[in-house]
């Protein structure tokens, strides 16, 4: 467990403004360790999603650096960006599966960055990919549904497929944008457990946007609190106090109610 110097991802002075002059991210600087789950918490509209999407450039950063595998992702050309994206798995709030394709095809689509388009079109994936896909489906508990269509699955099952698809990339980093926000509390815990276990087993660091503070504290190894586009808390879950939450979310009446 020597992770003092090693860094999987380094974000330097990241700025994003969708509209000129209105900063959504106001100079974020973060180093992500090569293992563990980093939970990003913060109020709606504070740039959590923008931050995570800037990392794989689904959203183009306005300025700053994102160093991953020794390269600055912000300045990569199209081809290089695709190659870098292959190594970054992503899980979405709305699962983002292709509904009319089978579960198996959705999982295999995680390999599209590696398989030539023509072979992918003919569904001729390498045997190792197919074996890996079955193994992953088994891991997430959906081996029996491999041939079902994605739109026949429940929300929790779809998110499992989403996780399997992300891991199919053999990623070196996992991003999750509100992976449990569309799920019920029990399923949310199951999905977070799955993400934590797989991240541990495979040694893949994960960055997870999450608005449920209790879930963040339970599963994350590190919590980053965003407010107004800036980092206002960064530490282990145990260090997160009501005072911090007040600072992140503002107000305090919501803290007493059902915190128990």
């Amino acid at each position: 467990m020597t992770q003092t110097s090693a860094v999987a991802l380094s974000i330097r002075q990241l700025v994003k403004a969708y509209v000129r002059g209105k900063l959504v991210l106001n100079g974020i600087t973060l180093d992500i360790a090569p293992d563990g789950i980093t939970a990003i918490i913060g109020p709606s509209g504070t740039g959590k999603s923008t931050l995570i999407r800037c990392i794989n450039r689904l959203v183009e950063p306005t300025s700053g650096e994102i160093i991953f595998e020794g390269r600055n992702l912000v300045t990569l050309g199209r081809g290089e960006l695709r190659a870098a994206r292959r190594q970054i798995g992503m899980v979405f709030q709305e699962y983002n599966l292709v509904e009319r394709l089978s579960v198996m095809e959705n999982v295999l689509s995680g390999r599209l960055g590696y398989v030539p388009p023509f072979k992918a079109w003919l569904r001729r994936f390498p045997q190792t990919d197919i074996n890996e896909a079955y193994a992953l489906l088994d891991t997430v508990g959906l081996a029996a549904q491999a041939h079902a269509r994605a739109d026949a699955l429940s929300g929790g099952q779809r998110q499992r497929v989403g996780i399997a698809r992300a891991l199919m990339q053999s990623p070196k980093l996992l991003l999750a944008d509100e992976p449990t926000s569309s799920l019920d509390p029990k399923t949310s815990v199951e999905i977070m457990t799955l993400m934590r276990d797989l991240s541990r087993q495979r040694g893949i660091p994960a960055i997870v946007n999450i608005h449920n503070v209790a879930l963040a504290q339970r599963f994350a190894t590190r919590i980053v609190g965003l407010s107004g586009g800036a980092v206002v808390f960064d530490g282990v879950p145990g260090a997160l106090t009501d005072a911090h939450l007040k600072q992140i979310y503002g107000g305090e009446s919501w803290l007493d109610g059902d915190s128990g």
Binding site: L58, A84, F92, N96, G113, W121, R165, A166, Q169
Partner: peptide, 15 residues
């Protein structure tokens, strides 16, 4: 959504 997911996985335009 699904398009974004495939792009995020590094899929080329044809795929």
């Amino acid at each position: 959504g699904p398009i974004e997911a495939l792009r995020a996985a590094g899929a080329p335009a044809a795929s």
